[in-house]
């Protein structure tokens, strides 16, 4: 294990106007690690992920990717974002592009990769998420589970170092949740570094290396999944887990 984490949050504070949403977050995600962030609604989980991708700016502290400060004002945001894949609750596929078009767009436009090369790579990625026969379908022709898998392939196309998942199964019909979690499980097995916000406790317990519980903009407790779910240290964690039953 490296001594420095791949993705590091240090004393991160975030305000929306007067509202103090993140209150000094310290967290490190090591290379190859899968951290699951859980916590009640409104506790700041999404905001934390969005700050890591600079979709939100922080007011205090620092976030570093492999030692490079992401949050510095002179950081090359577009470059750093390529190294951080993000998958959203609402898929956010580009509706005017086919599945393959969604996957190839950023490699072609941002990296300048030749069309054929990008197509080939898209083929591989769509196969990896189980959608090789849907490459020419538009998002509106796909089920929610399929769309979310395309979104994962799209993020992977930029070869990110870290993948961020923000409640990616919350908008899905229950019978479609499994296929998306399956893809994430495969990714974890391949050693992808992942930070996952989810309400799927079964998945968290099974796949996570570490559980992070957030409440009111603070990290309340972290720990190995087994220990966390069977023997929580804090009252807050106990409360949260008891409500899940």
């Amino acid at each position: 294990m490296n001594e420095a984490p791949l993705l590091a949050f240090e004393n991160v504070h975030k305000y929306f106007g007067e509202t103090h949403v993140l209150k000094g977050i310290d967290l490190g995600v090591d290379e190859g690690e899968l951290v699951v962030v859980i916590g009640p609604s409104g506790s700041g989980k999404s905001t934390l992920l969005r700050c890591a991708n600079r979709l939100e700016e922080i007011q205090e502290g620092e976030i570093r990717l492999a030692g490079t400060p992401l949050t510095a004002s002179d950081a090359d945001v577009n470059r750093l974002r390529q190294r951080i894949g993000m998958v959203f609750q609402s898929f956010n596929l580009f509706p005017h592009k086919t599945a393959a078009g969604n996957v190839t767009l950023a490699p072609r436009k941002v990296r300048g990769i030749a069309d054929e090369k990008a197509e080939e790579r898209a083929e591989t990625l769509l196969e990896r998420v189980g959608l090789s026969d849907q490459r020419d379908s538009y998002p509106a022709e796909l089920s929610g589970g399929q769309q979310q898998r395309v979104a994962i392939a799209r993020a992977l196309a930029m070869d990110p170092d870290v993948m961020l998942f923000d409640e990616v199964t919350s908008a899905l019909d229950p019978e479609l949740v499994g296929e998306v979690l399956g893809v994430m499980r495969d990714l974890a097995a391949e050693g992808m570094t992942m930070m996952v916000v989810t309400h799927e406790m079964g998945f968290a317990r099974e796949v996570a290396d570490r559980i992070v519980l957030m409440a009111d903009g603070e990290i309340v407790e972290t720990g190995e999944p087994e220990r966390f779910f069977t023997d929580p240290e804090t009252e807050r964690a106990e409360q949260f887990l008891s409500k899940l039953l």
């Binding site: 991708n53 979709l55 577009n78 470059r79 974002r81 390529q82 951080i84 894949g85 993000m86 959203f88 609402s90 956010n92 596929l93 580009f94 767009l105 950023a106 436009k109 941002v110 979104a151 799209r154 993020a155 196309a157 930029m158």
Partner: peptide, 23 residues
């Protein structure tokens, strides 16, 4: 358009101009 369109494009590393033009 949903703001998610711009955010998804930016999160892939596209610049503002690239995201505007292509997405």
């Amino acid at each position: 358009l949903p703001t998610g369109q711009m955010e998804a494009a930016r999160s892939l590393g596209m610049s503002y101009v690239q995201a505007m033009r292509n997405v």
